[in-house]
Structures are given as C-alpha cells and as structure tokens.
Design a protein around this nucleic acid. Structure first.
Lengths: 207, 207
DNA sequence: TTGAAACTGTGATTTAATTAACAATATTTC
DNA sequence: GAAATATTGTTAATTAAATCACAGTTTCAA
C-alpha cells in the first residue's frame, strides 16, 4: 500500500513541526493544532494520520514522540538513502548546504560538475567529482537519488546518464521536462513556472 | 473566470516549449506532440487549450505563434509585474541569476538582505538593498511579488513585513509554512519535503 | 455519576482533476 | 468525389483529494 503523494508531502511537513514541538518540550498535540501550523484542516490531518495507521490516546491528542517515530517508519529507509547533486552552480550549492545534516536518513554523498576547476572542491563537507566518474562513484557509494541543477541544455543528456548509472529517484530543477523509465521516480520543480503561476494569480485573484 | 492551478502551470510549460518550436521554425504543433514534450496526454493538452478558448485550424494542429500569443495574453500582465528577492544567500543568488531576462513581463527589480556587507552589491544587474528600506523600495518600484529565500528563523517575521509593505504574491522557499491574508497569493516550495517524497517513492514504488 | 465539552476516527458526500469516448471536421488517397 | 484517415473539441465517466457530518471515546465539572 503506497500513500497518496499529497499525504507523503504533508507527513514530511508534519514531522518537521513535530520535531520542533519536541524541542520545545511539547509532548502531545491536537489535530487542529497541527493543522493550524500548516494551514490546512484538522480533518485533513486526522485523515493523513489515519493513513499511516496511528491512533492517539483519545482526548489528549497525539503523542508527539510516537507520531514522529511512526512517520519516520513510513518515510525513512532503514539504512538511509544516498544522494548526489549534479551541477555545482548557485543552486547546486544552495541545495547542498541546505540538505547536509538535515535528515539523518538522506545523505548527500557527492556533487558532480563538468567544470574541472570545481573538482575536489568541498562544499559543506561534500566533495565534487568530475562527471566522467559519475557511474563509478554512484555505484561505489550506492547513490540512488540525484538532484539535477545543471543548465537546461545539458539536462536531457545528463538525465540519460543518471538513469544509465543506476539512479532510481530524480529531482529535476532544470526547466526541461524529462523522460525517464517508469521505474525511476521523477519529481520536477520548475521555478519559472511557479513564478508565472504566482504572477497569474496576483493578476487574476480567485473569486 | 480563473483557471485551475494545474492548468496555469502547464500553460507556462507549454509556452516554453512553443517558444522553442518557434526558434526551430516549427509553425504548427499537434496536441499529442505537445503532450509528449511534457509527459502528459493529448487530451490533457486539448483540455488546457480549450480552457483558454483557443481553437486550431483543424487537422493542421495548433498555430504555434498564435498559441504563444494567446497564452501570453492569459499569463502575462499588460505592464508586467515587478519582483523582489528577499535574502541573498546561495538560493537567492541562484533564483536571481536564473530569472533575470527570462520573462520580459516579470522584472526582478531588487534584492534585499540583512547582511550589511551585501548592500549595494549587484547580482545579474540587480542591486541589493538593506531590509530597513524594504517598504520604501517596494512602494517606489511597485513591486508586487516577493521571493523569499531567507533562513527559517526569520521567515515568519519577514513574511509579515512583506505583507505590510504591500506585496500581493509570495513565493516561499523557506521550510516554514506561512500564514498570509487571503488576498495575498502564496506559493510554498519546500525542498526537504520534495526530497523526502522522492525518497519515499524510491523506497516504496507505486503498483 | 450524570451531563456537557472536547477530540478522534471514519463512512458518506462533494469537489477538483484526469481520462475515456466519440461526433464533427478537415485532409488525403484513390 | 467517396472513402479512409487524422485530429480536434467536448460530453460523459472515472479517479483522486478534500470536506462534511457524526458516532464514539475520554475528560472534566458539578
């Protein structure tokens, strides 16, 4: 049984708030509190939590610690997953520094770039390799996820190489829509599209 | 009549492909071709195009030039919209260099940062202002959209200031969910959540 | 200890988004 | 110029996601 995409996203977000709660010493939380933290509804929260099969001790709200563990159980892989960042421009660096150390089960292992002057440079403790060594490094380190932050014109070629190297999850930050085999999970995020969407709704507000 | 969010997103994506087609001298395109470029279906494309009220000369496909114009008419504001980037870290710089010049109707006018050493620095032709001058600069330049790439701990405060300054569209790249008045359009993108989602589907592929 | 109040868990319903199905129409072929 | 083919536009059906509505706890207050 796989969860709905939106639920997975929200669980990830809930977890962050819950960890925050733990730090603040809050041990229990109500669905409506969690909802408020994420501008959605209490029912939605309960429904999401129902999906993962957790139940609260009624009337006290959810046990934060327990809920965090249940979510971790759903989202995290037991041994963790290894990640590579492809392309060390501004965005690649942002992503790398951003992620390192944030989630113990997602390890950024390497970055890659064509620019030979960047080779061996270390960003937030992560070393940069030449793209020529992609397959070798991916295999040696069992990297399964790639985050692509390369220029648009090399995106398609790069994606092919990544698939060839054995990647099974791909986050595409380029503006080029990619085609990958179905067994590779692809998440595309296109900033220009997002900005244009914001612009549209600024111009034509709903209702 | 406002369009469905997803349709707006896809229109933005279609436009990019269509502009590409124009450059290549392609004057007409079929729904299935456009679909293939964006890994979705021909019906979906036709439905989206139906929403914006455009019709093809049948059997020849859509006139690329005309379609681009119709989409521009829907997505773009006549006089363009002005945009500011808040926070000039790696991500802020990435976003700025990324956008500048990409869309004539979306002008990045200014960046802002607390770090006084960054003031007056110019990135891709865009000048950095101190946050203390936010309201003044926003008003003087009629900036209506803000892209937030600040650290998590200043996100909430920052959003409040932006709303106060008169922003009506907000792209939030921090991992903190924000609450803004309903008249402000909010788009949130959370990289950690996206990565965790990819990780989940790598671990638990669908079907 | 009875009753009111506060939450949760979940079937039923609604809404939004996608996909299927097909008539209508233009183009090509013979 | 009739038949076959390719493509669109749209109604209807399906699927996915969100919301409503409410019964079933547990707790608290009197």
């Amino acid at each position: 049984m796989t969860l709905p995409e939106r639920t997975v996203e929200r669980l990830s977000e809930y977890r962050r708030s819950l960890l925050q709660c733990l730090e603040e010493g809050k041990t229990h939380i109500f669905s409506h509190e969690l909802a408020e933290l994420h501008h959605n509804t209490a029912v939605q929260v309960r429904r999401d939590i129902m999906f993962i099969g957790y139940s609260s001790t009624q009337r006290k709200g959810y046990d934060v610690r327990e809920l965090v563990d249940v979510i971790a159980n759903i989202l995290d892989s037991e041994k963790g997953l290894n990640v590579a960042v492809i392309g060390v421009g501004n965005l690649g660096r942002a992503v790398t520094t951003y992620f390192v150390g944030k989630r113990s089960k997602l390890n950024i292992i390497a970055t890659f770039d064509v620019d030979t002057t960047k080779i061996d440079r270390v960003i937030s403790g992560v070393k940069c390799y030449p793209l020529s060594r992609l397959k070798e490094v991916v295999e040696a380190n069992q990297i399964s996820i790639a985050i692509m932050t390369v220029p648009a014109d090399s995106a398609v070629e790069m994606a092919a190489q990544l698939v060839e190297a054995g990647i099974t999850g791909l986050m595409n930050f380029t503006t080029v829509p990619l085609n990958v085999p179905r067994e590779v999970y692809l998440d595309e995020y296109d900033m220009i599209t997002s900005l244009e969407k914001v612009a549209y709704f600024v111009k034509s507000p709903r209702e």
